[in-house]
């Protein structure tokens, strides 16, 4: 049982590796204002399924790598209490990438669904 559980967990993780970039870009493209990590995590939690798809901690390294590829930009703003927050905003490159990724996602979804239906 635990064997299957571990494999399932691994499958979920590998799936998330690709989709989390897409989800984050999507969220930030729709947000009129820059958002910080906790805000994004909270939003995903509320709009997501009952079973959380991914740990919130995994979002941060993805945000960072998106920024490194210039799809996002960020700035640090002090907060009233606690450490400063890093606010992320989508760039023009990010929007262009999102449009392409969405197309790939649609194709992939269609392909997988069609294959599974047989």
């Amino acid at each position: 049982m635990s064997e299957i559980g571990a494999t399932t967990k691994k499958f979920q993780k590998e799936l998330n590796a690709g989709t989390s970039s897409l989800v984050l870009l999507g969220v930030l493209s729709r947000s009129p204002e820059p958002m910080y990590g906790y805000q994004i995590a909270k939003m995903l939690e509320e709009s997501g399924p009952d079973i959380p798809m991914m740990k919130q901690g995994t979002l941060y390294p993805v945000l960072r790598s998106l920024e490194e590829n210039r799809l996002l930009e960020s700035m640090v703003e002090p907060s009233v209490s606690g450490p400063p927050r890093r606010y992320y905003k989508i760039t023009e490159d990010g929007r262009a990438a999102l449009a392409e990724w969405l197309e790939i996602w649609k194709q992939t979804k269609k392909f997988v669904d069609a294959t599974l239906k047989g």
């Binding site: 910080y36 990590g37 906790y38 995590a41 909270k42 919130q56 901690g57 941060y60 390294p61 960072r64 907060s79 209490s81 606690g82 450490p83 400063p84 927050r85 890093r86």
Partner: peptide, 17 residues
């Protein structure tokens, strides 16, 4: 150092909420 800074930001914000 980066991972710690991210975790600190998130956990503090969550705790505050």
């Amino acid at each position: 150092q980066d991972a710690q800074a991210d975790a600190r930001e998130h956990l503090t914000n969550a705790l505050e909420a």
